[in-house]
Design a protein around this nucleic acid. Sequence first.
DNA 1: GGTGCGATGTTACCAACGGTAACGAGAGTC
DNA 2: GACTCTCGTTACCGTTGGTAACATCGCACC
Lengths: 214, 214
Amino acid sequence: MDTTQRTEQQRSAERRRRELLEAADRVVLRDGPQASMNAIAAEAGITKPILYRHFGDKGGLYAALAKRHTDALLASLRAALDAPAGRRERVESTLDTYLAAIEARPQVYRFLMHPAEGSAGGEQGFDVGKHSVPLLRRMGEELAQVIEERVDLGPDSRQLARVWGHGIVGMMHAAGDWWLGERPCSRADLVRSLADLLWGRLAAAGDRLGGPGF
Amino acid sequence: MDTTQRTEQQRSAERRRRELLEAADRVVLRDGPQASMNAIAAEAGITKPILYRHFGDKGGLYAALAKRHTDALLASLRAALDAPAGRRERVESTLDTYLAAIEARPQVYRFLMHPAEGSAGGEQGFDVGKHSVPLLRRMGEELAQVIEERVDLGPDSRQLARVWGHGIVGMMHAAGDWWLGERPCSRADLVRSLADLLWGRLAAAGDRLGGPGF
DNA sequence: GGTGCGATGTTACCAACGGTAACGAGAGTC
DNA sequence: GACTCTCGTTACCGTTGGTAACATCGCACC
């Protein structure tokens, strides 16, 4: 009986927490990352202190909010990485999954990666630095593990896989960020260009005539 | 006479501005990026309003501060990229220059790239998001230009070079960030690993036995 | 049926921040 | 002497993150 009671209360608290998170999500996606705690509380139909009771401080709320999207993104990436296909197909599919995600919900992406770039004109926003980096790190570590498991890299494979994991994730992130802002080509073109880079086309390319070469 | 007077005043203003920037630099490097305008003004021996007269707002001060370091870094990268050597040597040298820079002055690096991670316990910091991205973008565009100028990429070379420029910069940035935090290997090892990745070692590697391949 | 008690919610407040208005002190110019 | 221009100040405002103190409701317990 004691247990059922506690679980009942816990369930209620968790449901409430989810509601609050959804309200926060709406506000952050509408007002940008500089949404104030007051605004979020108002959207949820309550006042500030209970927000603080649930999440501790603004960072806590942010972390909870970021974790939802981060976990979802990581899950879809993992699925693409595990699909039954050849290596290059899988690389392209994973790149495409990431780019499709940031293309489909750029507000979420900007929230996760670019703190103070909301639509409104405010100046101080969420301190994403503490949380956006972990997303990149998690993706890097995950990719490193996949590489180490599946690619034969000879000695020092562990180290090499980690360097490559973080490097490839950084490549994907930076190229995606730039692409999302300028849209200079189709997503498929971007995917192919990046995969070509990874496949050694830089090394294979010849120097331009008359120049000293890259 | 009028001109000399004005240049004299301008000189004085610029000198003052440099002094203020140096004071701001000290404070930011000591207190982290969440340094307050009051603290910076105090370090400079003055009070807030004249800081605002010189830089407009906090973003202006930050931009001026970031521009100094950004320009210096870009200049050294350009030098490495222009050195007389083979392509791979130059790529390695450029990677090494960047990594050496962030290794030598990690505080500057963290200031430029990671807003709210200062040593002190404060919570709200400079909104770097608006300025750190431009650094990555500038590096990406610059590298893209170098690639397009010197590497023969066939048709669509302009687009491809830009994708690669931003992608490679992102790779360097993410790998460097991770490496700076964990120091899992020497700088030379990291440089070699990244250059190997760029040189197609991923494509050339075989699948691990028993696995479906990466 | 009163009684504690924990969760939920509120109002009112604090400290700190970015930013600004209003004023004052010298220094050169007419 | 009056004018003006820059450098500098004090004192203030609005907003924000965060908290203390109080009210209220449901509910088990004797």
